[in-house]
Amino acid sequence: MKKVSNPSLAARRSFLSKLARAAACTGALAGAGALGVGVAKGASAKTEAKPAAEGGSFPTKDYDWTKHQWAFGVDATKCIGCLRCVEACKVENDVPRNAHQFRTWVERYVYLEGEDRARIDSQQDPVNIAASGSEKEYRFANRYKDQKVDKAFFVPKLCNQCTHPACVQVCPVGATYKTEDGVVLIDHDYCIGCRYCVQACPYGARYFNEEHGVSDKCTWCYHRITKGMQPACVEACPVGARIFGDIKDKQSPVSLFIRNNRVQVLRPETGNAPNVFYVGIDKEVN
């Protein structure tokens, strides 16, 4: 998922390039350009109901983003913490192979006997990296083997593709945007690398790619799902803890998952309205 461009942004850019050719780049032009954007935006709003594939720059031919509404389910009771999802994601999406930047990760919650708070770690924890022997491979160290564990579980995390995404709200240039089918994407050719979105995400789902100078995050493998495939993490999961699908299709795996379970979302108090639905998480998970 590298160069997915929003048609409205493309319209804006072509409009602006014409504008820029027409006038010298002065401070006054800046104001006029802003007004122009408003016009371009208004124009693109009218065409938003059109299939995205007609936008020209869309990667998948014949894909109609008005016909889908993607959603993600996580069944934490099934996750075994094997971290294949994390490795699959890193490979599939060219995520830097280090212990600091992830599009998806898995958290481990362990309640030891006599303790009232969970001990929480993830694959990036130095103890776990030492166990795997490399920052490019991930595994959970068996660090509690000599202690009595009362309760323990794993929680896979990824971008929540919120209905009201704080990251989209704060982006000063509109490089990150919400698609019609419910995924939040980043235009890497337009991102200025201010990292305001990284700060604004309450879930820590975004990171800054130093090499490319832009923000990055999980896209639910938009390049795959628009071709009818599953996200890489879903495909790699050996136990079916990650469920993906179209909620416009009432018989899709995710529709059934939401219908047949009592699901919850992370940090509902933020007002972000996340679209990753969890089963089997505990009070300390946020």
Binding site: G33, V173, I192
Partner: peptide
């Protein structure tokens, strides 16, 4: 900025909902 050469994007195509 990761891309200082794009700094003026914020002025020529401002995303009004952003405080920045």
């Amino acid at each position: 900025l990761g891309h200082p050469e794009r700094a003026f994007n914020a002025t020529i195509t401002p995303h009004w909902s952003s405080a920045m």
